[in-house]
């Protein structure tokens, strides 16, 4: 059984994510320090909270997460978890983890913010996370910010919400979803299973 860690960095509700991963066949541990992520086959950064306190908590007093985990073993960032992979966010003043060049910007003001609800995913390239997921599958979003990668090639699916929102990103063994796969029905379940498959490689 593949062993993964959920890094708990604050206010988030981890119950659903833990449950979904267990139903997908993983052994799931919740760890509250980046150093606790060592020894697992994969790490998940769940998706609720505020950019500055979250990134501070992950960076801590050292760079263990950036040096030993991110880019070395599969990591899936969900929502804010994905946003932290980038260099900066309009939500805060702290530097991001910087694993993916680009920034995080607020959603267009012409739309209702936060964007809450189901939206369909337009796949732009074949990604590992999306293996077997039908094009135009729906996913559940709850967010006020979106990522803007410098290299559009890291985006494997997008959603339309007044503008094109990068919804799934992949760079090496770094994965991110702007939506919540643990709340996205059968399509989300498949993506979590695909992530666990990457973890067990």
């Amino acid at each position: 059984m593949v062993k993964v860690a959920i890094l708990d960095y604050g206010a988030g509700n981890l119950f659903s994510l833990k449950n979904s991963l267990e139903r997908a066949g993983a052994e799931v541990y919740i760890v509250d320090e980046p150093s606790g992520c060592a020894g697992y086959s994969g790490v998940l950064l769940p998706g609720v909270g505020n950019f500055d306190p979250a990134v501070k908590k992950i960076r801590g007093k050292n760079t263990i997460f950036e040096d030993d985990i991110l880019g070395k073993i599969p990591v899936l960032g969900i929502c804010l978890g994905m946003e932290m992979f980038f260099e900066s966010s309009e939500e805060g003043i702290e530097q991001g983890l910087g694993a993916i060049p680009g920034k995080v910007v607020v959603l267009p003001s012409s739309m209702k913010v936060p964007h809450m609800g189901w939206n369909s995913l337009e796949q732009s390239r074949q990604g590992r996370l999306l293996e077997g997921v039908q094009d135009n599958s729906w996913a559940y979003f709850v967010h006020s910010y979106m990522v803007k990668p410098e290299d559009p090639g890291v985006v494997s699916a997008s959603a339309d919400y007044g503008t094109s929102i990068p919804a799934v990103i992949e760079k090496g063994c770094i994965y991110g979803t702007q939506f919540h796969p643990e709340k996205s029905g059968p399509a989300g379940r498949l993506m979590l299973e695909n992530f666990l498959t990457e973890c067990s490689r």
Binding site: S16, R23, V142, H180, K183, R189
Partner: peptide, 11 residues
């Protein structure tokens, strides 16, 4: 709430 959260994968 806990029992429901354990069996569904929608919000």
């Amino acid at each position: 709430v806990r029992d429901v959260a354990s069996v569904i994968d929608i919000p």
